[in-house]
Nucleic acid binder design. Structure first.
Lengths: 129, 129
DNA sequence: CCTATATAGTTCATATATGAAACAAACTCG
DNA sequence: CGAGTTTGTTTCATATATGAACTATATAGG
């Protein structure tokens, strides 16, 4: 059981290290990825759902992303309560750079797990969730 | 790759939920477990090594464990710089209660993964580390 | 023996996470 | 329509984590 926890943390660590050179953390990269994939500004509540975390966490994350100039808070004309997060050009650029690093880690990991049955592994890990 | 990270987080979450009723977090339980297993007070640096974290983290963790009355800082007569963490009777009791909960989660997880080749899974997860 | 360095712990700034409480805006129902 | 509820965001207190800077002690070499 602790092998699963440790393996998860080890992969996280590797991703953090890979993203550090492009000045991103895994959390920031994940948020940017969701926003880029969505193709449109997402409300902070939607962001919280995508990131599987509570909303107050997103408030803080957006503060940091805005301070980095990667994201901008924009008002929602449809709902005056809502605030949407919009990726800036710099944010999109940074996300793309991060994606390259992540792909590298993925390739390394695939190599590490060569010889294993990926489908079986995938099924086992999915079952845990 | 993200399956591994997610699976790890999911297991962590389940452990946190299982430990909550005995007023422990996974971090606190882990620290108590190491101390109980050691069978003697450990210096805070040794604690950091066991927990695979930096020493400043242990300073804070011990502050919380001491506030909970689960651990006590004791001086080391051999080395006046060092401070050792000693489990209190309450701490030992709490650790034992936590261990029961952890065992339950382990059993559930084994059931979830029944039909899978545990050895293969174990090997794959170990390879990632 | 004294100086240089290493080790032990803490403090501080910061990142990430949660959950409770507060507040505004939107919505529902009688 | 207006009261009560839900939804969206923020603020605060707290837990967990890192790394740099600081202090005290130990230890090694000249």
């Amino acid at each position: 059981m602790f092998s699963i926890v440790n393996a998860g943390r080890a992969v996280e660590q590797r991703l953090e290290e890979a993203l550090a050179p492009v000045s991103l953390t895994l959390t920031k990269f994940g948020m940017l990825l969701h926003l880029v994939e969505a193709g449109e500004p997402l409300s902070l509540s939607e962001c919280a759902k995508k990131m599987s975390c509570v909303r107050s966490n997103i408030t803080q994350l957006m503060d940091r992303l805005e301070a980095d100039g990667l994201v901008q808070r924009v008002e929602d004309p449809q709902d005056r309560r809502a605030i949407r997060a919009e990726v800036t050009p710099l944010g999109a650029e940074r996300q793309a750079a991060g994606a390259k690093e992540v792909t590298k880690v993925q390739a390394e990991l695939a190599k590490t797990l060569s010889g294993m049955d990926h489908a079986t592994l995938q099924r086992a890990l999915a079952a845990v969730k």
